[in-house]
Computed example of a mutant assay.
Amino acid sequence: MGAQPTGPADEGEERALELAHRVFEHARQGRTRELCGYLDAGVPVNSSDSEGNTLVMLAAYHGHARTVLALLERGADPDRTNARGQTPLAGAVFKGERDVVAALVAADADPYLGTPNALESARFFGRTDLLDLLEVPEQD
């Protein structure tokens, strides 16, 4: 059997997948300017990958506060959960990304949302330094 011929639809799908990969990689790497170029050209700010991770989730988890802020300014949902029920705020707490946590809290991210939620993550991983940002007093 020979290779299947590819038509315009296959090429278009391949280009779309390549674009999506590029956009998600910009979020993951904190390439704010490049990412915003795609968003400003029409890529949806709440796009998600096959695991439900949004652009803001990837930027938050990888500690890119400037990218998170740019996404939030463009309307990214700070509370959208991924396929595992995790939120960007819980991911930033898990990673100890104080500036990202502050940005998400300023955007009214819900510390009680998700599994585990941001508060549970802070307590479980001993991130009591972040509880003040989550506007919750430390437990004795």
Rank of each mutant, 00 (worst) to 15 (best):
A92W: 12
V43R: 09
G91H: 00
H26A: 09
A109M: 09
A41V: 02
D140P: 15
G75N: 12
D140F: 02
G7Q: 11
E97T: 07
P8Q: 11
A90Y: 01
E11L: 13
H21I: 02
G30W: 09
G7D: 15
T54E: 07
E25H: 11
E51A: 09
G7A: 14
G75D: 11
P88I: 01
A90M: 08
H21A: 12
L134H: 01
N46V: 02
A92E: 14
P44E: 09
G42K: 10
A65D: 14
Q86Y: 01
A106E: 03
E13Q: 14
V93A: 10
G91Q: 00
L113F: 04
D99T: 05
N46D: 12
C36I: 07
A9L: 15
A41M: 02
P5E: 13
R15Q: 12
E25F: 11
Y61E: 13
G52C: 11
A76R: 03
L134I: 04
D10F: 07
G42Q: 12
T87N: 08
N46E: 03
G7N: 14
A103Y: 01
L69W: 08
L58K: 07
V101H: 04
F125D: 13
P78I: 04
Q29I: 03
F94K: 12
E120S: 12
E25K: 10
E13S: 10
L69I: 05
A60R: 02
T115L: 04
G37W: 12
T128S: 09
H64W: 15
L71D: 15
Y112C: 09
A9V: 10
P116W: 01
G91D: 00
E34W: 04
L131V: 07
R127P: 15
L119W: 03
S50D: 02
L19I: 07
A70W: 01
E13W: 06
R80K: 07
T128R: 06
A41E: 01
A107Q: 13
L89T: 05
N53V: 04
K95I: 03
E73N: 11
N53Y: 11
L55T: 03
L119E: 00
V105H: 00
R22S: 13
L19V: 10
E14W: 14
V56Y: 01
L17C: 11
D108E: 15
A65T: 09
T87F: 05
L19H: 09
A59Y: 00
E34T: 10
P5V: 10
F24H: 08
L133K: 15
F125I: 05
A20N: 15
T54A: 09
L113H: 15
A27D: 06
A59T: 06
A106Y: 02
R127K: 13
L113Y: 01
D110A: 14
P44V: 06
A20L: 14
H21R: 08
N53C: 13
D99Q: 14
V136L: 10
D132V: 06
V100A: 03
L130K: 06
Y38W: 10
A76P: 12
G85E: 04
G75P: 13
P111S: 08
P116F: 03
Y112L: 09
S48I: 03
V93S: 10
V56R: 01
G42T: 08
A70L: 06
D132I: 04
V136A: 14
G37P: 08
N82H: 11
L72G: 11
R15I: 08
D40R: 00
A106G: 05
L130E: 10
A20Y: 15
E25N: 10
Q29T: 05
E25Y: 08
N117V: 03
A106N: 05
N46L: 02
